[in-house]
Design a protein around this nucleic acid. Sequence first.
DNA 1: AAGTGCAACAACCGCAAACTT
DNA 2: GAAGTTTGCGGTTGTTGCACT
Length: 272
Amino acid sequence: MVRAPCCEKMGLKKGPWATEEDQILTSYIQKHGHGNWRALPKQAGLLRCGKSCRLRWINYLRPDIKRGNFTIEEEETIIKLHEMLGNRWSAIAAKLPGRTDNEIKNVWHTNLKKRLLKSDQSKPSSKRATKPKIKRSDSNSSIITQSEPAHLRFREMDTTSTACNTSSSDFSSVTVGDSKNIIKSEDIESMETMPVIDESFWSEAAIDDETPTMSSQSLITISNDMPLQYPFANYEETFQQSHAYDSNFDDGMDFWYDIFTRTNDSIELSEF
DNA sequence: AAGTGCAACAACCGCAAACTT
DNA sequence: GAAGTTTGCGGTTGTTGCACT
């Protein structure tokens, strides 16, 4: 596949948007909708690439965008959601109507992250391990960032040769895995007390050698009256029923994802 | 008033997933 | 199913404006 030439090489404009450009884009989308972003700038008479138009519309021009400072409530929501979802800015943005992923990402990097860091440092003994920098291109190789909550890291796992790493406190009684390699919550629990691991641990080789794998037939079990310590500790939610989930692993992980993205909602067990 | 540092935010880039042919 | 195209996401960078010296 040949990469499309960049905007500059095609004589397209880059950089900050002019008011006129904004007006052209807005009126065009209001009249015709955006349809094909790639074709849009040409049709609208803009010297921009489709990607740039899309970004400008989504992050700035869209009528439903809420502008202005983030409220305390919004900031707290971001912090909570980030704790649960990691750097899934679009998922976090979906929970904050009128806010864009880009905006949330900026607020996080410029404001909230520092605030959390300060409050972390003020605590006498933080268990937080340093996050290893992992190239995005490695996502296919099942390396999962340490900073992410375990349920999401599970979700990203390859169904054939899979690494399974976890860190902070996660579930009180959950088992994930296939018949050969069931990962029990006790294991997850014990991992919490493991010493801080060094960078080399996260190399692919280390993962291949030392971590269990999951087959496509994976079993997830939630026990009775399971108090969800993480992330639901914040929301004081408790499972009252027992469920066994035995299916295609990806579906299973969607199940997890669905559950764990519910924050203030009640959990609908009827989905099973 | 000029220079410098920093925070905030807009925009870009590369990648991968999703979609289409 | 393969190849090509589009879209969406997340990381990063560039620009701007403000505070401080």
